[in-house]
Design a protein around this nucleic acid. Structure first.
Lengths: 149, 149
DNA sequence: TTTCATGTAACTTATTTAGTTACGATAAGC
DNA sequence: GCTTATCGTAACTAAATAAGTTACATGAAA
């Protein structure tokens, strides 16, 4: 799994889970989808469990299932559950007391608040069901679902 | 200079430059504002020179000046000149041929294009002049411009 | 021609994040 | 119960990224 691909990797996993709604998929199986290992998967999607987006069960026959219908899972929730930041820049003060820095941070934070609201709104309108629908469209067109390396 | 603070650090520098419009500031001086060293400053704002946002001159009495009026310098241009990405997530394929991944990337890229347009629009409406105005407001209120450590 | 500045390559250091190992807890099947 | 399969998580290692540093060439003013 590459850097900065936690969101896309997680979506990849979730679409696979949505395609097998009644079958618990193990961390091992999920890991192969995104070319990583089970521990990274558990660590990555632990937040989704806390958010109720997925459930996990231990022991024989255990694994991961969606916590609710794909229609009820938005990308905004997923992104938030991953702890992802939508805007990458920092506004941490480095020169406390500098009025120039304070002005810069104030303006940048205003922008950030407005921008995050906008992005969250856009992301909340895209659901996991939209992704699975897009996948099925491609599948029906090509008829292949192989995982090429 | 902390990680992910290239944008705010650069804005900090630019406001200082806007406050001394006729005085070329050296990389050394700019570096002290953001607690780093001259080479990092040159490297960081090299893109701004290429974009015409600042000019630099070598030799005795040399240094950096704004390339045009603060009213004509938008945060969108600055961010672009820094080579900053507005959205942090990657959509590089990791499993070429996987239709699930293709669907995920397609949806995410659509979102990215729309989001970047939105953010760039918002940032293009904020100019360096807005930042200096905010700074001056704070300065007039408190009457101190010290750089506390 | 000396001094002061940027430009930039090359290297070092620090930070972050993914990957890995190890092991405890839990649950199903026998 | 015992075995096997699975998650949960801590601790460590490795890789990637970005900042910091050193060094030196280039250019311009005094």
């Amino acid at each position: 799994m590459k850097r900065n691909s936690r969101l896309s990797s997680t979506l990849h996993i979730l679409v696979h889970m949505a395609e097998k709604p009644e079958q618990a998929l193990t961390s091992e199986e999920l890991a192969t989808f995104i070319h990583t290992n089970p521990v990274v998967v558990r660590r990555t999607i632990a937040g989704l469990r806390d958010a109720g987006i997925v459930t996990s069960s231990r022991g024989h026959g255990g694994g991961w299932l969606l916590g609710r219908a794909p229609e009820a899972i938005s990308l905004a929730e997923i992104s938030a559950a991953l702890g992802e930041t939508l805007l990458p820049f920092s506004t941490e003060p480095e020169s406390p007391g500098c009025l120039v820095e304070q002005a810069v941070i104030a303006v940048l934070d205003d922008f950030r608040v407005a921008a995050e609201k906008l992005l969250a709104e856009k992301l909340s309108r895209i659901t996991l069901a939209d992704l699975t629908a897009d996948f099925r469209r491609r599948y029906d067109l090509i008829g292949v679902s192989s995982h090429a390396v």
